[in-house]
Design a protein around this nucleic acid. Sequence first.
DNA 1: TTAGGGTTAG
Length: 584
Amino acid sequence: MLAKQTPLSKQMLSKLLQTSSSKPKQLKKIHALVLTSGLSVKNSLLTQLLENLILIGDMCYARQVFDEMHKPRVFLWNTLFKGYVKHKLPFESVVLYQKMRDLDVRPDEFTYPFVVKAISQLGVWPCGFTFHAHVVKHGFETLGIVATELVMMYMKFGELSSAQFLFESMQGKDLVAWNAFIAVCVQTGNSALALEYYYKMCADAVQFDSFTVVSMLSACGQLGSLEIGKEVYDRARKEGIDCNVIVENARLDMYLKCGSTEDARFLFEEMEQRNVVSWSTMIVGYAMNGDSDEALALFNMMQREGIRPNYVTFLGVLSACSHAGLVDEGKRYFSIMARSNDKNLEPRKEHYACMVDLLGRSGLLEEAYEFIKKMPMEPDAGIWGALLGACAVHRETKLGQEVADLLVETAPDIGAYQVLLSNIYAAAGKWDCVDKVRSKMRKLGTKKVTAYSSVEFEGKIHFFNRGDKSHPQTKAIYEKLEEILKKIRNMGYVPQTGSVFHDVETEEKESSLSHHSEKLAIAFGLINGRAGDPIRVMKNLRTCEDCHVFAKFVSRLTSRDIIMRDKNRFHHFRNGVCSCREFW
DNA sequence: TTAGGGTTAG
C-alpha cells in the first residue's frame, strides 16, 4: 500500500495517517516517509502523527516525534502534556515542563490545567506548592478551570484546609467547580465534607445536576447514610434531573454499601437500562454483604443474558467465593480468566490477591504461598497483606513473621500490617515479640488509624470513638450498654479478651473492651431507632471478635437485626447468628 | 487548535 520511493504529497500522507491511526507499524513507515519527503509542511504532518501516537498510547515515540519538530508552538506542548496526563505519566510531564522553561517557551492558559493535574498524579507535595507559585506568576490562578484543578490537587494531597480556602475564594464558581470539589472530597474519603458542601451549594441556590447526585450517592454509600441518600435521590427526581444509568448504578451501590440488599435488588429489577457496571456492582455488593450464592447466581444470569463481565466483575465473583470458602469454584473462575483470550480479563494483581485470600482463609497457607511464588508479576503489599491476614486467622506465627518481614520491605509505613503482625504474636502468646513490634512502630512513627463507628439517625450521622463521652446522650447510652451487658452475660456472653483480631485499641483493659465504638453505636441505635428497624452500624476498621460475639447476643436478646459494616465486609446479625458464618 | 465534574474494584 505504501509506495517506497515515490515522494508523496502532503495530502496523501495526511490521508494515510488518518487511515492508519491505530496501526503502530504503519505509523512508523509513514513517519519515515514524512522525514524523507522534503516537504516544507513537516510540522503539520508530524502533529497528526503525534496525535495518533498519543491515541494509541505510545508516549515514548510521541516524545521522539515532538523532539523532531522545528520550534513547536505552545499548543503542541499542550498536546503532549495532555497525552502524559491521559496515560498517567506525571514524571514525564514535569521533565517536559522543565524543558519548556529552559527553552523560554511561555505556557498559556491551556498549559496549566494539564500540568497541575500531572502534579496531582505525581503526588509529591512540595512540587504542588512550587507549581501553584508558577500558576500565580503567570497570572492564571483566577482562571476557573486552573483554580478547579488546583483545588483538586490540594485535596488529593490531603491539604484540606488549603483546598477549602482556595475553593471558597474562587470568584463566580460554576456548577462544574462545585461538582469537582464535591467529587474530590468523596474520592479522598472526605464524604462528610462533601455533604457539607452539597448543603452549601443548595443554600447558595446553585442548581445541581446528575454529576452532583452521583457524587452524593457515593458519599452516602461511604458514610452508610441510607436516609440522606434516598433524600438526595428523591429531590433530584422532583427537580427533574435526568437520572441516567450512571446515577442508578450509584444508587445501587449506595444501597449495597448501606447493607440494604433488598433495596438494591428491587432497584436492579426495575432498572430500564443495565450495563456491566450495574451487574458488577450487584455481584460485588452481594459478596460484601455475605450473600455469595446470590452473587454467583447473578454472575451466571449475567452470562446467560450475554453481558460480558469485566475484571471488576471477576473481583466480585472471587471475593464471593472467598467469603463462602468456595475454594474449587474460586479456582475455576480464576482459570476462566487465565484462559480467556480477552486481554481485559487477564488476571491482575487484585485477582491474585483475591486468590491468596481465598486459599489463605481456607487454611491452605502453603498453597497460597506457592501461588504467590508462581505469580507472573512482582507481588505487592496487597498480596503479602492477604497472606499475612490469613496467617493471623490461622495463627501461623512462623509464616506470618516471614511474610511480615517481606512486607516491611514493600510497605514499611502501613500500620495495619504491623498491627496484624502484633496480633499474630499476641494470639501465640509471644508478648515479648508483641512489644518489639510495638516499639518499632513507635520508633518509625507508624500511625494507627483511630477506630470509630457511626450510626445514622434522622438524617444525621452520629460518630463514636472508643470510650466516647462526647455525645449528648452519653448517660443514656452507657446505661443501656450496662443493662445489655448484664442481660447477655446471663445468656452466656463471655468477653473475648484474647481475640485474634484485636486491634491495637483492644489491647487495653477489659473494661475498655466493653466501651468499643461499635458497642456504643449499637446502644445508641437501640435507644433511638424504631423497634423492628435494623440497626446499621458502620465501622472504619475491622470489627473485633468480642464485638462480633456481643452483636450476636444483642440481636437475639432484642430481636433486632444489626447490620454492621466493617472495613472488609458486612455482618448481618439476626437472632444470634451472623451472616458471615464466622468466616472473616 | 488544545482545559475543570460522575458509577463497580483498590
